Each structure stands twice: as C-alpha cells, then as structure tokens.
Amino acid sequence: MATKAVCVLKGDGPVQGIINFEQKESNGPVKVWGSIKGLTEGLHGFHVHEFGDNTAGCTSAGPHFNPLSRKHGGPKDEERHVGDLGNVTADKDGVADVSIEDSVISLSGDHCIIGRTLVVHEKADDLGKGGNEESTKTGNAGSRLACGVIGIAQ
C-alpha cells in the first residue's frame, strides 16, 4: 500500500500549488496538507474528481469521485461524495494553506484517490446545502481553477 501521495495543481491562470497526502494505516485517516497560491481571497471548493484525465484541462477530470452514488455534502457529513473535501481558505495575498484530515478518502482500496484528479474551484462549496439540484452534485463551487493528478510519492 502506498502511504504517501502528492498532487501538483496547475491551471490556465495564476492558480498553482502542491498538496501532499499521507496515510499511516490502511483504514486510518489521510492527512492532506500543502499550499495553493494565486486564488482570490475567501473560500474555494476542494474536491477529488473521478478521473485522472487532464487532456482537456480540468474539465476532463469528470464529476466528483463518488463510488457510493451519494449526494454532495461537506467533509463531516454522512451523506457526501468520497471526493468531497470541503473548502480551502485563501488569505488576502491569495494563498491557501491547506491542513485537512479526512477519514473517507484513502490511498488504497475502494476509496483510493491515487490516479484521480484534485481540483480547486472558483467559488465556495455550499456543502450540499444550497437548496438546488446543482448543490447536491457540485456544491455550486463554480469553474475549475486548477487541477492535477494525484500520484504515489516516496
């Protein structure tokens, strides 16, 4: 089992970053940390998408990683996509320092995120509470600013 993974985020604009993942036990939580720069100040949706395909930019990554066919939600919700990591918060300089621990994603097994795409979005994720159909699919997080395929790390 891989215990570490990394993702280099890039987009068409100024947004870029490096996100690290570490899972010490196969059924334990995954620590997610790193930094994203070039964002507007505020909240930005942060999700693992189904495919590791960036051939047409971030759009070819498909929908959120959702092997259990659930509705979109927040990272602490029972009803959520596996890939729903909530929001990252950018400061006035456009930098989001990421520090998350998640017990639904994994670096092995059915919820493995390796080979899938991590995406940072234009807007805040409403965590499935926006009151419309799009909220239950995407959290109304808007366009995909930057993305990268999650790969095994040393």
Rank of each mutant, 00 (worst) to 15 (best):
T3E: 03
A5D: 08
C7G: 03
L9C: 02
K10Q: 09
G11V: 05
G11N: 09
D12L: 13
D12C: 10
G13L: 06
G13F: 09
P14R: 11
V15R: 03
Q16A: 11
Q16W: 14
G17T: 05
I19T: 00
I19P: 02
I19V: 09
N20S: 10
E22R: 06
Q23C: 02
E25A: 10
S26A: 09
N27M: 06
N27P: 14
N27S: 13
G28T: 03
G28R: 04
P29E: 02
P29W: 00
V30Y: 02
K31A: 07
S35D: 09
S35V: 14
I36G: 01
K37S: 15
K37H: 15
K37Y: 07
L39K: 02
T40I: 09
T40Y: 03
T40D: 08
L43Y: 15
L43K: 09
G45K: 02
F46W: 07
H49L: 10
E50S: 11
E50W: 15
G52H: 03
G52T: 03
N54G: 11
N54P: 11
T55A: 14
A56S: 14
S60Q: 09
A61Q: 06
G62D: 09
H64R: 09
F65M: 08
L68D: 04
K71L: 14
K71C: 05
K71Q: 08
G74C: 02
P75E: 06
P75V: 15
K76M: 12
D77Q: 08
D77W: 02
E78Y: 11
E79M: 12
E79L: 13
R80Q: 05
R80A: 03
V82L: 13
D84H: 06
D84S: 10
L85N: 01
G86N: 00
G86Q: 00
N87L: 07
N87I: 07
T89E: 10
T89I: 15
A90E: 03
A90N: 00
K92V: 10
D93H: 08
D93F: 13
G94E: 05
G94Y: 02
V95M: 07
V95K: 10
V95S: 10
V95P: 01
A96L: 00
D97P: 15
V98Y: 01
S99L: 10
S99P: 09
I100P: 00
E101Y: 05
E101D: 06
E101C: 08
D102E: 04
S103C: 14
S103D: 09
V104F: 08
V104M: 13
I105V: 08
I105C: 02
S106P: 04
G109C: 02
G109A: 05
D110E: 15
H111C: 11
C112F: 07
G115S: 05
G115Q: 01
R116A: 07
L118M: 10
L118A: 03
E122M: 08
E122K: 11
E122G: 10
K123R: 14
D125A: 13
D125T: 07
D125Q: 07
D125C: 14
K129C: 12
K129W: 14
G130N: 08
G130R: 11
E133N: 05
E133L: 12
E134S: 04
S135T: 07
T138R: 04
T138A: 05
G139Y: 08
G139M: 01
N140H: 06
A141M: 07
A141K: 07
S143K: 11
C147T: 15
G148W: 02
G148T: 00
V149T: 10
V149C: 08
G151P: 00
A153Y: 09
